[in-house]
């Protein structure tokens, strides 16, 4: 029983961290219509910067500034924000499939840099030498995980509430106005490019926070953590949960990550012994089929966006997830 609780605490921590990143993406895609194909670059920037700033000195790479943990985490968010600003200035005027591939390229370039620049980030063997905050006081075990979960959940709630307010604010309305009809928004004297950049940077800072927490939890980060599969996972969570809806984003995260891990567990337990070696492959087939099935059954996501409009000037917006261009 204690094992089950211990596992659930662990699972919830990882899922909550991912949920924060999904919320960041929801601001960019769900509310602003920016197709960010490079989520993992901003997540990774947060993770690497947090460990570099907060870690102990290491002989062979940059870092070991031993900053006070909250400062290191803020530094990680800042790093993600700076990267997003740079990328945003260069690419946000692109049409969205072009934007997707351009940002995807940024993520690949980020991973490549981390893998090769040993002096900067430890190279392929990754970045270590980070002391988890409060480890001395709490030890390494269940208590630590419980306290860390509380910390992560608090931040998840803070981000959730912040985004909820942001979306209901005049700024949030402007985001949706630009998403739906850029020309109209422009004609009303708004500056779409500035607003979009703000949303892009804000979303990326939130992803950077998620990355920082992720690296803190494992006290380690390596190029293997920032492969494109993570971008895909985070997108799948948003699409399944419901783009444009924050509650949906969180729900989608728990469902996809839960399904991802539970399918592996179930196969290891119930598949016949001769088939055990093939379960990894079978699991990927299942994951693919779940995603396809979901899109065939409910493409708008489990909790679709509820449009907050003061007066409806448009016909019903049925195909939320993709009809804009």
């Amino acid at each position: 029983m204690i094992g089950v609780i211990s596992y659930l605490v662990f699972f919830t921590t990882v899922a909550s961290i991912l949920a924060i990143a999904v919320l960041g993406l929801n601001l960019q895609w769900g509310n602003t219509g920016l197709f960010n194909g490079g989520v993992v670059a901003f997540f990774g920037a947060g993770a690497y910067a947090t460990l570099i700033l907060g870690g102990t000195p290491q002989a062979d790479h940059l870092g070991g500034f031993e900053l006070f943990y909250p400062l290191a985490l803020l530094g990680g968010m800042l790093a993600a924000g700076l990267l997003a600003w740079l990328v945003g200035v260069l690419t946000l005027r692109l049409r969205h499939d072009y934007l997707a591939i351009a940002t995807f390229g940024v993520a690949v370039a980020f991973e490549t840099l981390m893998r090769n620049a040993e002096g900067l980030a430890g190279g392929a063997k990754g970045l270590r030498g980070f002391e988890r905050p409060l480890r001395e006081a709490l030890g390494d075990g269940f208590t630590y995980n419980l306290v860390f979960l509380a910390f992560v959940l608090t931040l998840l709630i803070v981000v959730y509430v912040f985004l909820g307010r942001l979306i209901r604010s005049p700024f949030g309305r402007m985001l949706r106005a630009i998403r739906e009809d850029e020309v109209a928004a422009k004609s009303l004297g708004k500056s779409p490019s500035r607003v979009r950049l703000t949303a892009f940077v804000t979303g990326s800072v939130i992803m950077g926070l998620a990355g920082g927490l992720y690296a803190t939890f494992y006290a380690f980060i390596s190029p293997q953590d920032v492969l494109p599969i993570l971008t895909f996972q985070i997108w799948a969570m948003l699409i399944v949960g419901g783009a444009g809806n924050n509650a949906g984003a969180v729900l989608g995260t728990f469902i996809i990550w839960g399904g991802w891990t539970a399918s592996g567990w179930a196969l290891s337990r119930f598949a016949p012994i001769e088939a055990q070696l093939y379960t990894g492959t079978v699991q990927f087939i299942l994951i693919g089929m779940i995603i396809v099935g979901m899109l065939m059954w409910r493409p708008q996501g489990l909790l679709p966006e509820r449009l907050v409009v003061s007066q409806s000037g448009k016909p019903e917006n049925k195909h939320k997830t993709g009809s804009r261009r």
Partner: peptide, 9 residues
């Protein structure tokens, strides 16, 4: 036996 998928998470 569990598959790591070469994915740390």
């Amino acid at each position: 036996l569990r598959d790591s998928q070469v994915d740390p998470k």
